[in-house]
Design a protein around this nucleic acid. Sequence first.
RNA 1: GCCGGAGUGGUGGAAUUGGUAGACGCGCUGGUUUCAGGGACCAGUAUCCCCCGGGGUGUGCGGGUUCGAGUCCCGCCUCCGGCACCA
Length: 830
Amino acid sequence: MDEYPFKKIEPKWRKWWEDNKIHHVNLDDSTEAKKYIVVMFSYPSEKKLHIGHWWNYGGVDAFSRFIRMRGYNVFEPMGFDAFGLPAENYAIKNNVHPAITTRKSVKYIREQLKDIGAMYDWSREVDTSQPEYYKWTQWLFLQLFKTGAAYRKKAPVNWCTDCKTVLANEQVLGNGTCERCENKVITRDMEQWFFRITDFADNLLKGLDDLDWPEATKSMQRHWIGRSEGTDIDFKVVNHDETIHCFTTRPDTLFGVTYIVLAPEHELVVKITTDKQKAEIDAYVEETHRYSDIERLAADREKTGVFTGAYAVNPANGEELQIWVADYVLKTYGTGAVMAVPAHDQRDFEFTQKYNLSVKWVIGTSDPHGTIETDRAFEEYGIMHESGQFDGMTSEMGIEAVNEWLSSRNAGKSTVRYRLRDWLISRQRYWGAPIPVVHCKKCGLIAVPEDELPVLLPEKNVDFTPRGSSPLGSCKEFIETKCPECGGEARRDPDTMDTFVCSSWYFLRYLSTDSQDQAFNPDRINRWMPVDVYIGGPEHATGHLIYARYIIHYLNSIGLIDCKEPFKKLIHQGIINHKGQRMSKSKGNVVNPDPFVEKFGSDCFRLYLMFMGDFRTGGDWSDDGIIGIRRFQNRIWRLFLAWEHVNSSVGVPACDRIMDVSNDLSNVEPNLKRLLNYTIREVTNDLENFDFNTAISRLMELVNELYKQTADKDNVDPAYMKLALRTLTILIGPLAPHMAEELWHRIGNKDSLFNQKWLSYNKDAIRQEEVTIVIQVNGKLTDRLSVIKGTSEEDLKEAALKSEKVKRRMGDKALKRVIYVPNKIINIVC
RNA sequence: GCCGGAGUGGUGGAAUUGGUAGACGCGCUGGUUUCAGGGACCAGUAUCCCCCGGGGUGUGCGGGUUCGAGUCCCGCCUCCGGCACCA
């Protein structure tokens, strides 16, 4: 039996596509409508593509090819997110320079990517670790710096005592230890670079409404931004000329405040602590620094705190309140100070229990007989009491009224706070884009002039093993420089940028890789942005996807680009597990795609992954099913071999006549006519919706049916077969591009299949003359009737009641009603 | 604790969105082919009972709405993902 010779065919067409620049995109062509389809670029530090990449990239390519065949100018680029910690860690461990390992990985992965047979335009590849790219990442930084959106401040960071380096939050394990050495991680205050993403909190929140994104992801971003309306209330400190500002969302509980809490890092702690309490407070503050933020924030930790010895005055009733320091209050949220209302806040309640502080109930239920349990806080809205002139108000009214009262007395004002923090972008690491700023003793922080970019990352004389400060600081040639302002001795900033900065704008750079004198060409941006469909994992919901949105909002705000949002539609691919678990080296269940590609071919492997399950859901990898796809390919191949003669024996006019299936098909058998049109409709809808698995099922059905209908070869009209094979070739093109291109040329075409227009279908041709009506008795399937479409309800009812099966099931019960769903079901109720 | 998503044959998964549950594939069973094979083709395959004509039961569990529920409502269970002292 003839097997489909994928080994000969796949490399042949890959070369042909490349030689004929089939995948080259003209970015300046405005004659065709564009579609910009981007899949998150790959992270070469992982060294090799795994099955998940094939799942993702194969599906996205099928979609892109389909869109292209529908007549759009489609741009589907690919690149490398090549800076980052894994390459650096590998380098430290094996003493190989990260530049070398990264370049090697990129080269290897690029070849693997080419095996997928996707229509990437490789002339527009980006690599974030190349000076041609990071020059513009630095340029982007400078734009932010010039407008004050990039700034330095002292901030608590995670510090591993053993590795002697700063760690990202993701690198700290749940128990507060370092993921690499499992030693203790502490909090350390360090001067860091930040981007003012909080300035855009509200815009980022509002922008979500119009995005065609998964609701779950939008919801995650909303929570992450965490807008919350409340009030800043001023508490004067007794015997000090200081005021503590407390943010609360519940000013209606103001009369229930029994003490005040400051975060350990709060600047007033030192000022107001009494001499008597000083030793204890110092010890406590010191103690909190011994924990990482992650550890401190563990919700199940018992609350601790220390009294400062100082008091503050409640502006509502003049009561004096103890001021405490406790690490359950965070310096980084709100004002870093809290008015504690134990009766109506469970956290404060727990704290009071431990330290024997008083509880004052000021909110009750509206039900006069309703009692509130007193063993925990009552956090709901209710009716105010013990609250002076506000007694009897609902919480909603009270919040308004207290706000007005406070602001009229200059003791507070309503504000909006966000959970979102400014984006900490500096890293004390080597393998990243250097921050293009010079520190001059005389002039301060001075931006490197744009025409001096890039600030090259030195590849020699850098000791990148961690020792407690930025590796670049140890490189004399790099760090010592002249101040661009005064020309005096100065030092370069030794930090590098978070790789999320690199990946926050790469989709802009794809459009201008041919330009060395600008980050992006505004005309092209305005023509191609936003990205029409962006595909990537849901794990980026609150990281990359917020950062990229922020950068676009920012560039828009300073007038550099027109578009407001980077990604119009977002799709998350699912995750491929193996044996029910996520693939990982430690579990030893990683599946390497290469042997499967070698044994079954690229198309077969792509098809199998797409067929395995829903693109968005993911699935569990199994070696077993792929054989079914090979059989499917072989069946198609043999079908073409068996009918090869029709391509020469059927003349050109016949071919023209059947170019478009929606045209007159009067001479084609009704069954086939219907089948072809039906398959076009189904496959079209499925590809539009990323439902590759069902699209492939429909094509399998078509092939099965063609085998059945052509069992008797002599009775088949060759034109009919020619039409069927042509239709099949076009429909399978996006899914199995190599095979389809081969078949396309075999049936007599010279140009690429992917320059061919997609097929339209004829609705009328799908309509069936004969339909099967299901007869139910009390909703139970009882019998079937095959009738001509449009048979009247009366006739159907009569026929149904005559059925022996129906009679048997009805027994002697009387007919009550008949429900009729046209052309589908007749339900007899008795 | 809070917010999402999902539970369907031996197995991967379908189901026009309230209308024939199990499409398509894997596996398995039987058969055909001068078939040495992990080849090709045909038929069967949710499950239980059975007088072989049928009958009962079935989409995580328990209720409900409806002529009719995998799909909608209420209450649970399990798994996965995210957030987690955010005042």
